[in-house]
Design a protein around this nucleic acid. Sequence first.
DNA 1: CAGCTATACTTGAGCAGTCAAGGAGGTGGC
DNA 2: GCCACCTCCTTGACTGCTCAAGTATAGCTG
Lengths: 154, 154
Amino acid sequence: MSSTLDAALRLVRAQTALVRRFDASLSGLHGVSLADFTLLLRLGQAPGGRMRRVDLAEALGLTPSGVTRGLAPLERIGLVTREPDPRDARVAYAALTDTGRTLLRDMRATAERVADEVFAAPSWSPDDIALLAGLTTRIGGTGLTDRPASAPDR
Amino acid sequence: MSSTLDAALRLVRAQTALVRRFDASLSGLHGVSLADFTLLLRLGQAPGGRMRRVDLAEALGLTPSGVTRGLAPLERIGLVTREPDPRDARVAYAALTDTGRTLLRDMRATAERVADEVFAAPSWSPDDIALLAGLTTRIGGTGLTDRPASAPDR
DNA sequence: CAGCTATACTTGAGCAGTCAAGGAGGTGGC
DNA sequence: GCCACCTCCTTGACTGCTCAAGTATAGCTG
């Protein structure tokens, strides 16, 4: 087996395991999936806690359609609201509500705990983790996002 | 953002991009998805080109149910057949047909080409690739049997 | 202004996987 | 030989995304 194909397939496999692990904790404790969480997290990083749906899609590696569908249940339970743009009636911002912001804090604590368990010492050193982040970022960059690893979020 | 959570999310993101890339080539040239390909590839690695569905599931990080559904279209187009076990009527092996074996060879060439493009020099050195494979293998583990998050320690 | 093209988003259909439940067959205790 | 229990696999109902098509708005060009 070529080493490049092997590496690619291992990465895919690792993601499956990772997602399962996050989903188990996040859905158990907060009733949301990892996908929901990343949506909220990304919104939380944006200025004002709001973003255009198209930008959200690009930032998350989804299609706009995926964002529409992912946001719907979050709006329904009041974590996110839809805000129109006064200058451009085509755009509908997705914005975190106060409830959403509060829950996001808790979810984030859960997610960080899970991530710390996954990458626990002694198997994982800080260098390993940084290395993994660097390598995976190079792959992600080949498609939908060119945002570099060190770009600051506002 | 905690570095562990950051690394986990980047890995998930990288996988999305990777899967898209493989799917584009594999479905364009051979009409199969990456999931189909990994199924066939794993079968091809097994002695006699056949495996029990349960073992296939474990090897691929899927549920048995996912294997049943994934195999169905491949049986329909004749790449895989169902073979009963003469000693245990519960098991239904999945086995590569000759057609499947032939097509697998072509798919594999395509997949290796894509993988080589993704991990092309000069961005990627052989060491980088080996490193990535090693790091992701640690996460993927070697089984589907991951303990729930509530279990402490290790 | 009219008309063209481009952008933002939603929607219908469909696919790939999950979980929970269940059928069917195997296995061991008595 | 029967019964309780286990394993292998499938199925129904659902989720979460995709693509393609459609709607509505914006903006340029003459």
